[in-house]
């Protein structure tokens, strides 16, 4: 069954007369991982808050788990788990106490919470930290505890706002692996990110946001095929102006970002011939990725 978990139709939201979310529509099917990809200030967190019913849209319609939002937010939130952009764990409590206290907010009894704590600790690889104070945990452990906390009510839908921002690569991979495990068990995930790699690895579909607008939507693969569809050569070290006039005849398109030239080349060999013997230049050829899509659509480079 793939009933829609989230439906946004023509949603608008402004702060101080400035649109932060502008005519955004998308649908997230049950069981899929949907990404909201965009740079700082694109409106990702605002959309996440609207999914939770914590911010009221100025216009448009939002349905989450079949409930109209934000009116029936309380009902919908019974089936939602949240990983916010900024940790809001109880720093003075232990890991176990954090889970206990949070479970009670869902009306669970102490006994039923204690019954599931071991499995949550195992899931988040925090078994050995059960009685450690949260203030003493590393950033990655805190993030995993937030994830465990989000699962306490056995939610169908997880809303994650930049789940891996600020983590080192090892910690990030561990979170990704845990999220794939949840997806395999049929959970629906909506996540915001500005990491291309995260979006490409995890998301079935995503929408690219820029200044509150949904500027492209689809699977990572389709987006890359549609908007780029050829190999990319990145060149750095030379004068971008001079280089781009040299290479322009041999490529489909060129984008300059800082001192880097991105060449979209259906026939990369021709470009490499031009660059041969230029010791001042460094270049690399790679398959296209979401970063190229983003650059193409917005003229902006995302953080790496």
């Amino acid at each position: 069954m793939s009933k829609a978990a989230i439906e946004f139709t023509g949603v608008k939201k402004s702060f101080r007369n400035k649109f932060v979310v502008n005519e955004v529509s998308f649908t997230v099917a049950s069981g899929e991982c949907f990404g909201l990809l965009g740079p700082n200030g694109a409106g990702k967190s605002t959309i996440a808050r609207m999914v939770l019913g914590m911010t009221r849209p100025d216009a448009g319609k939002i349905t989450v788990l079949g409930e109209p939002m934000p009116e029936r937010g309380r009902l919908a939130r019974k089936g939602i788990g949240v990983v916010p952009q900024f940790d809001n764990l109880e720093l003075d409590f232990t890991v176990r106490e954090n889970l206990l206290v949070f479970g009670r907010y869902f009306g669970m009894s102490t006994r039923s919470i204690e019954a599931i704590i071991p499995s949550l600790l195992e899931f988040s690889r925090l078994e050995s930290k059960a009685d450690a104070r949260v203030a003493d945990l590393s950033g990655g452990m805190k993030r995993r505890l937030t994830l465990a906390r989000a699962l306490i009510n056995d939610p169908q839908l997880l809303v994650m706002d930049e789940p891996t921002t600020g983590l080192d690569p090892h910690a990030r991979h561990l979170i990704w692996e845990r999220l794939r495990f949840l997806l395999a068990r049929g959970k629906t995930i909506i996540l915001t990110t500005h990491f291309m790699e995260e979006a490409e690895r995890l998301c079935d579909r995503l929408c690219v946001l820029d200044h509150g607008r949904n500027i492209a939507e689809g699977s990572p693969h389709t987006l890359i095929e549609e908007h780029i569809g050829c190999q990319v050569i990145e060149i750095f070290g030379g004068n971008p102006q001079e280089l781009s006039s040299l290479i322009r005849p041999y490529v489909q398109r060129i984008e300059v970002s800082g001192e880097t030239l991105f060449c979209y080349a259906p026939d990369p060999e021709q470009v490499r011939v031009q660059l041969r013997g230029r010791a001042d230049l460094r270049y690399l050829q790679r398959p296209p990725n979401l970063e190229d899509v983003f650059l193409r659509l917005t003229g902006l480079e995302l953080e790496k």
């Binding site: 939770l52 914590m54 309380r74 939130r77 019974k78 939602i80 788990g81 949240v82 916010p84 900024f86 809001n88 764990l89 109880e90 720093l91 949070f102 907010y105 869902f106 009306g107 989000a150 009510n153």
Partner: peptide
Amino acid sequence: DRRTWEAILYTRLT
């Protein structure tokens, strides 16, 4: 500054 209420608002509490 602790954002405790924000976390509570993710649950079924109003």
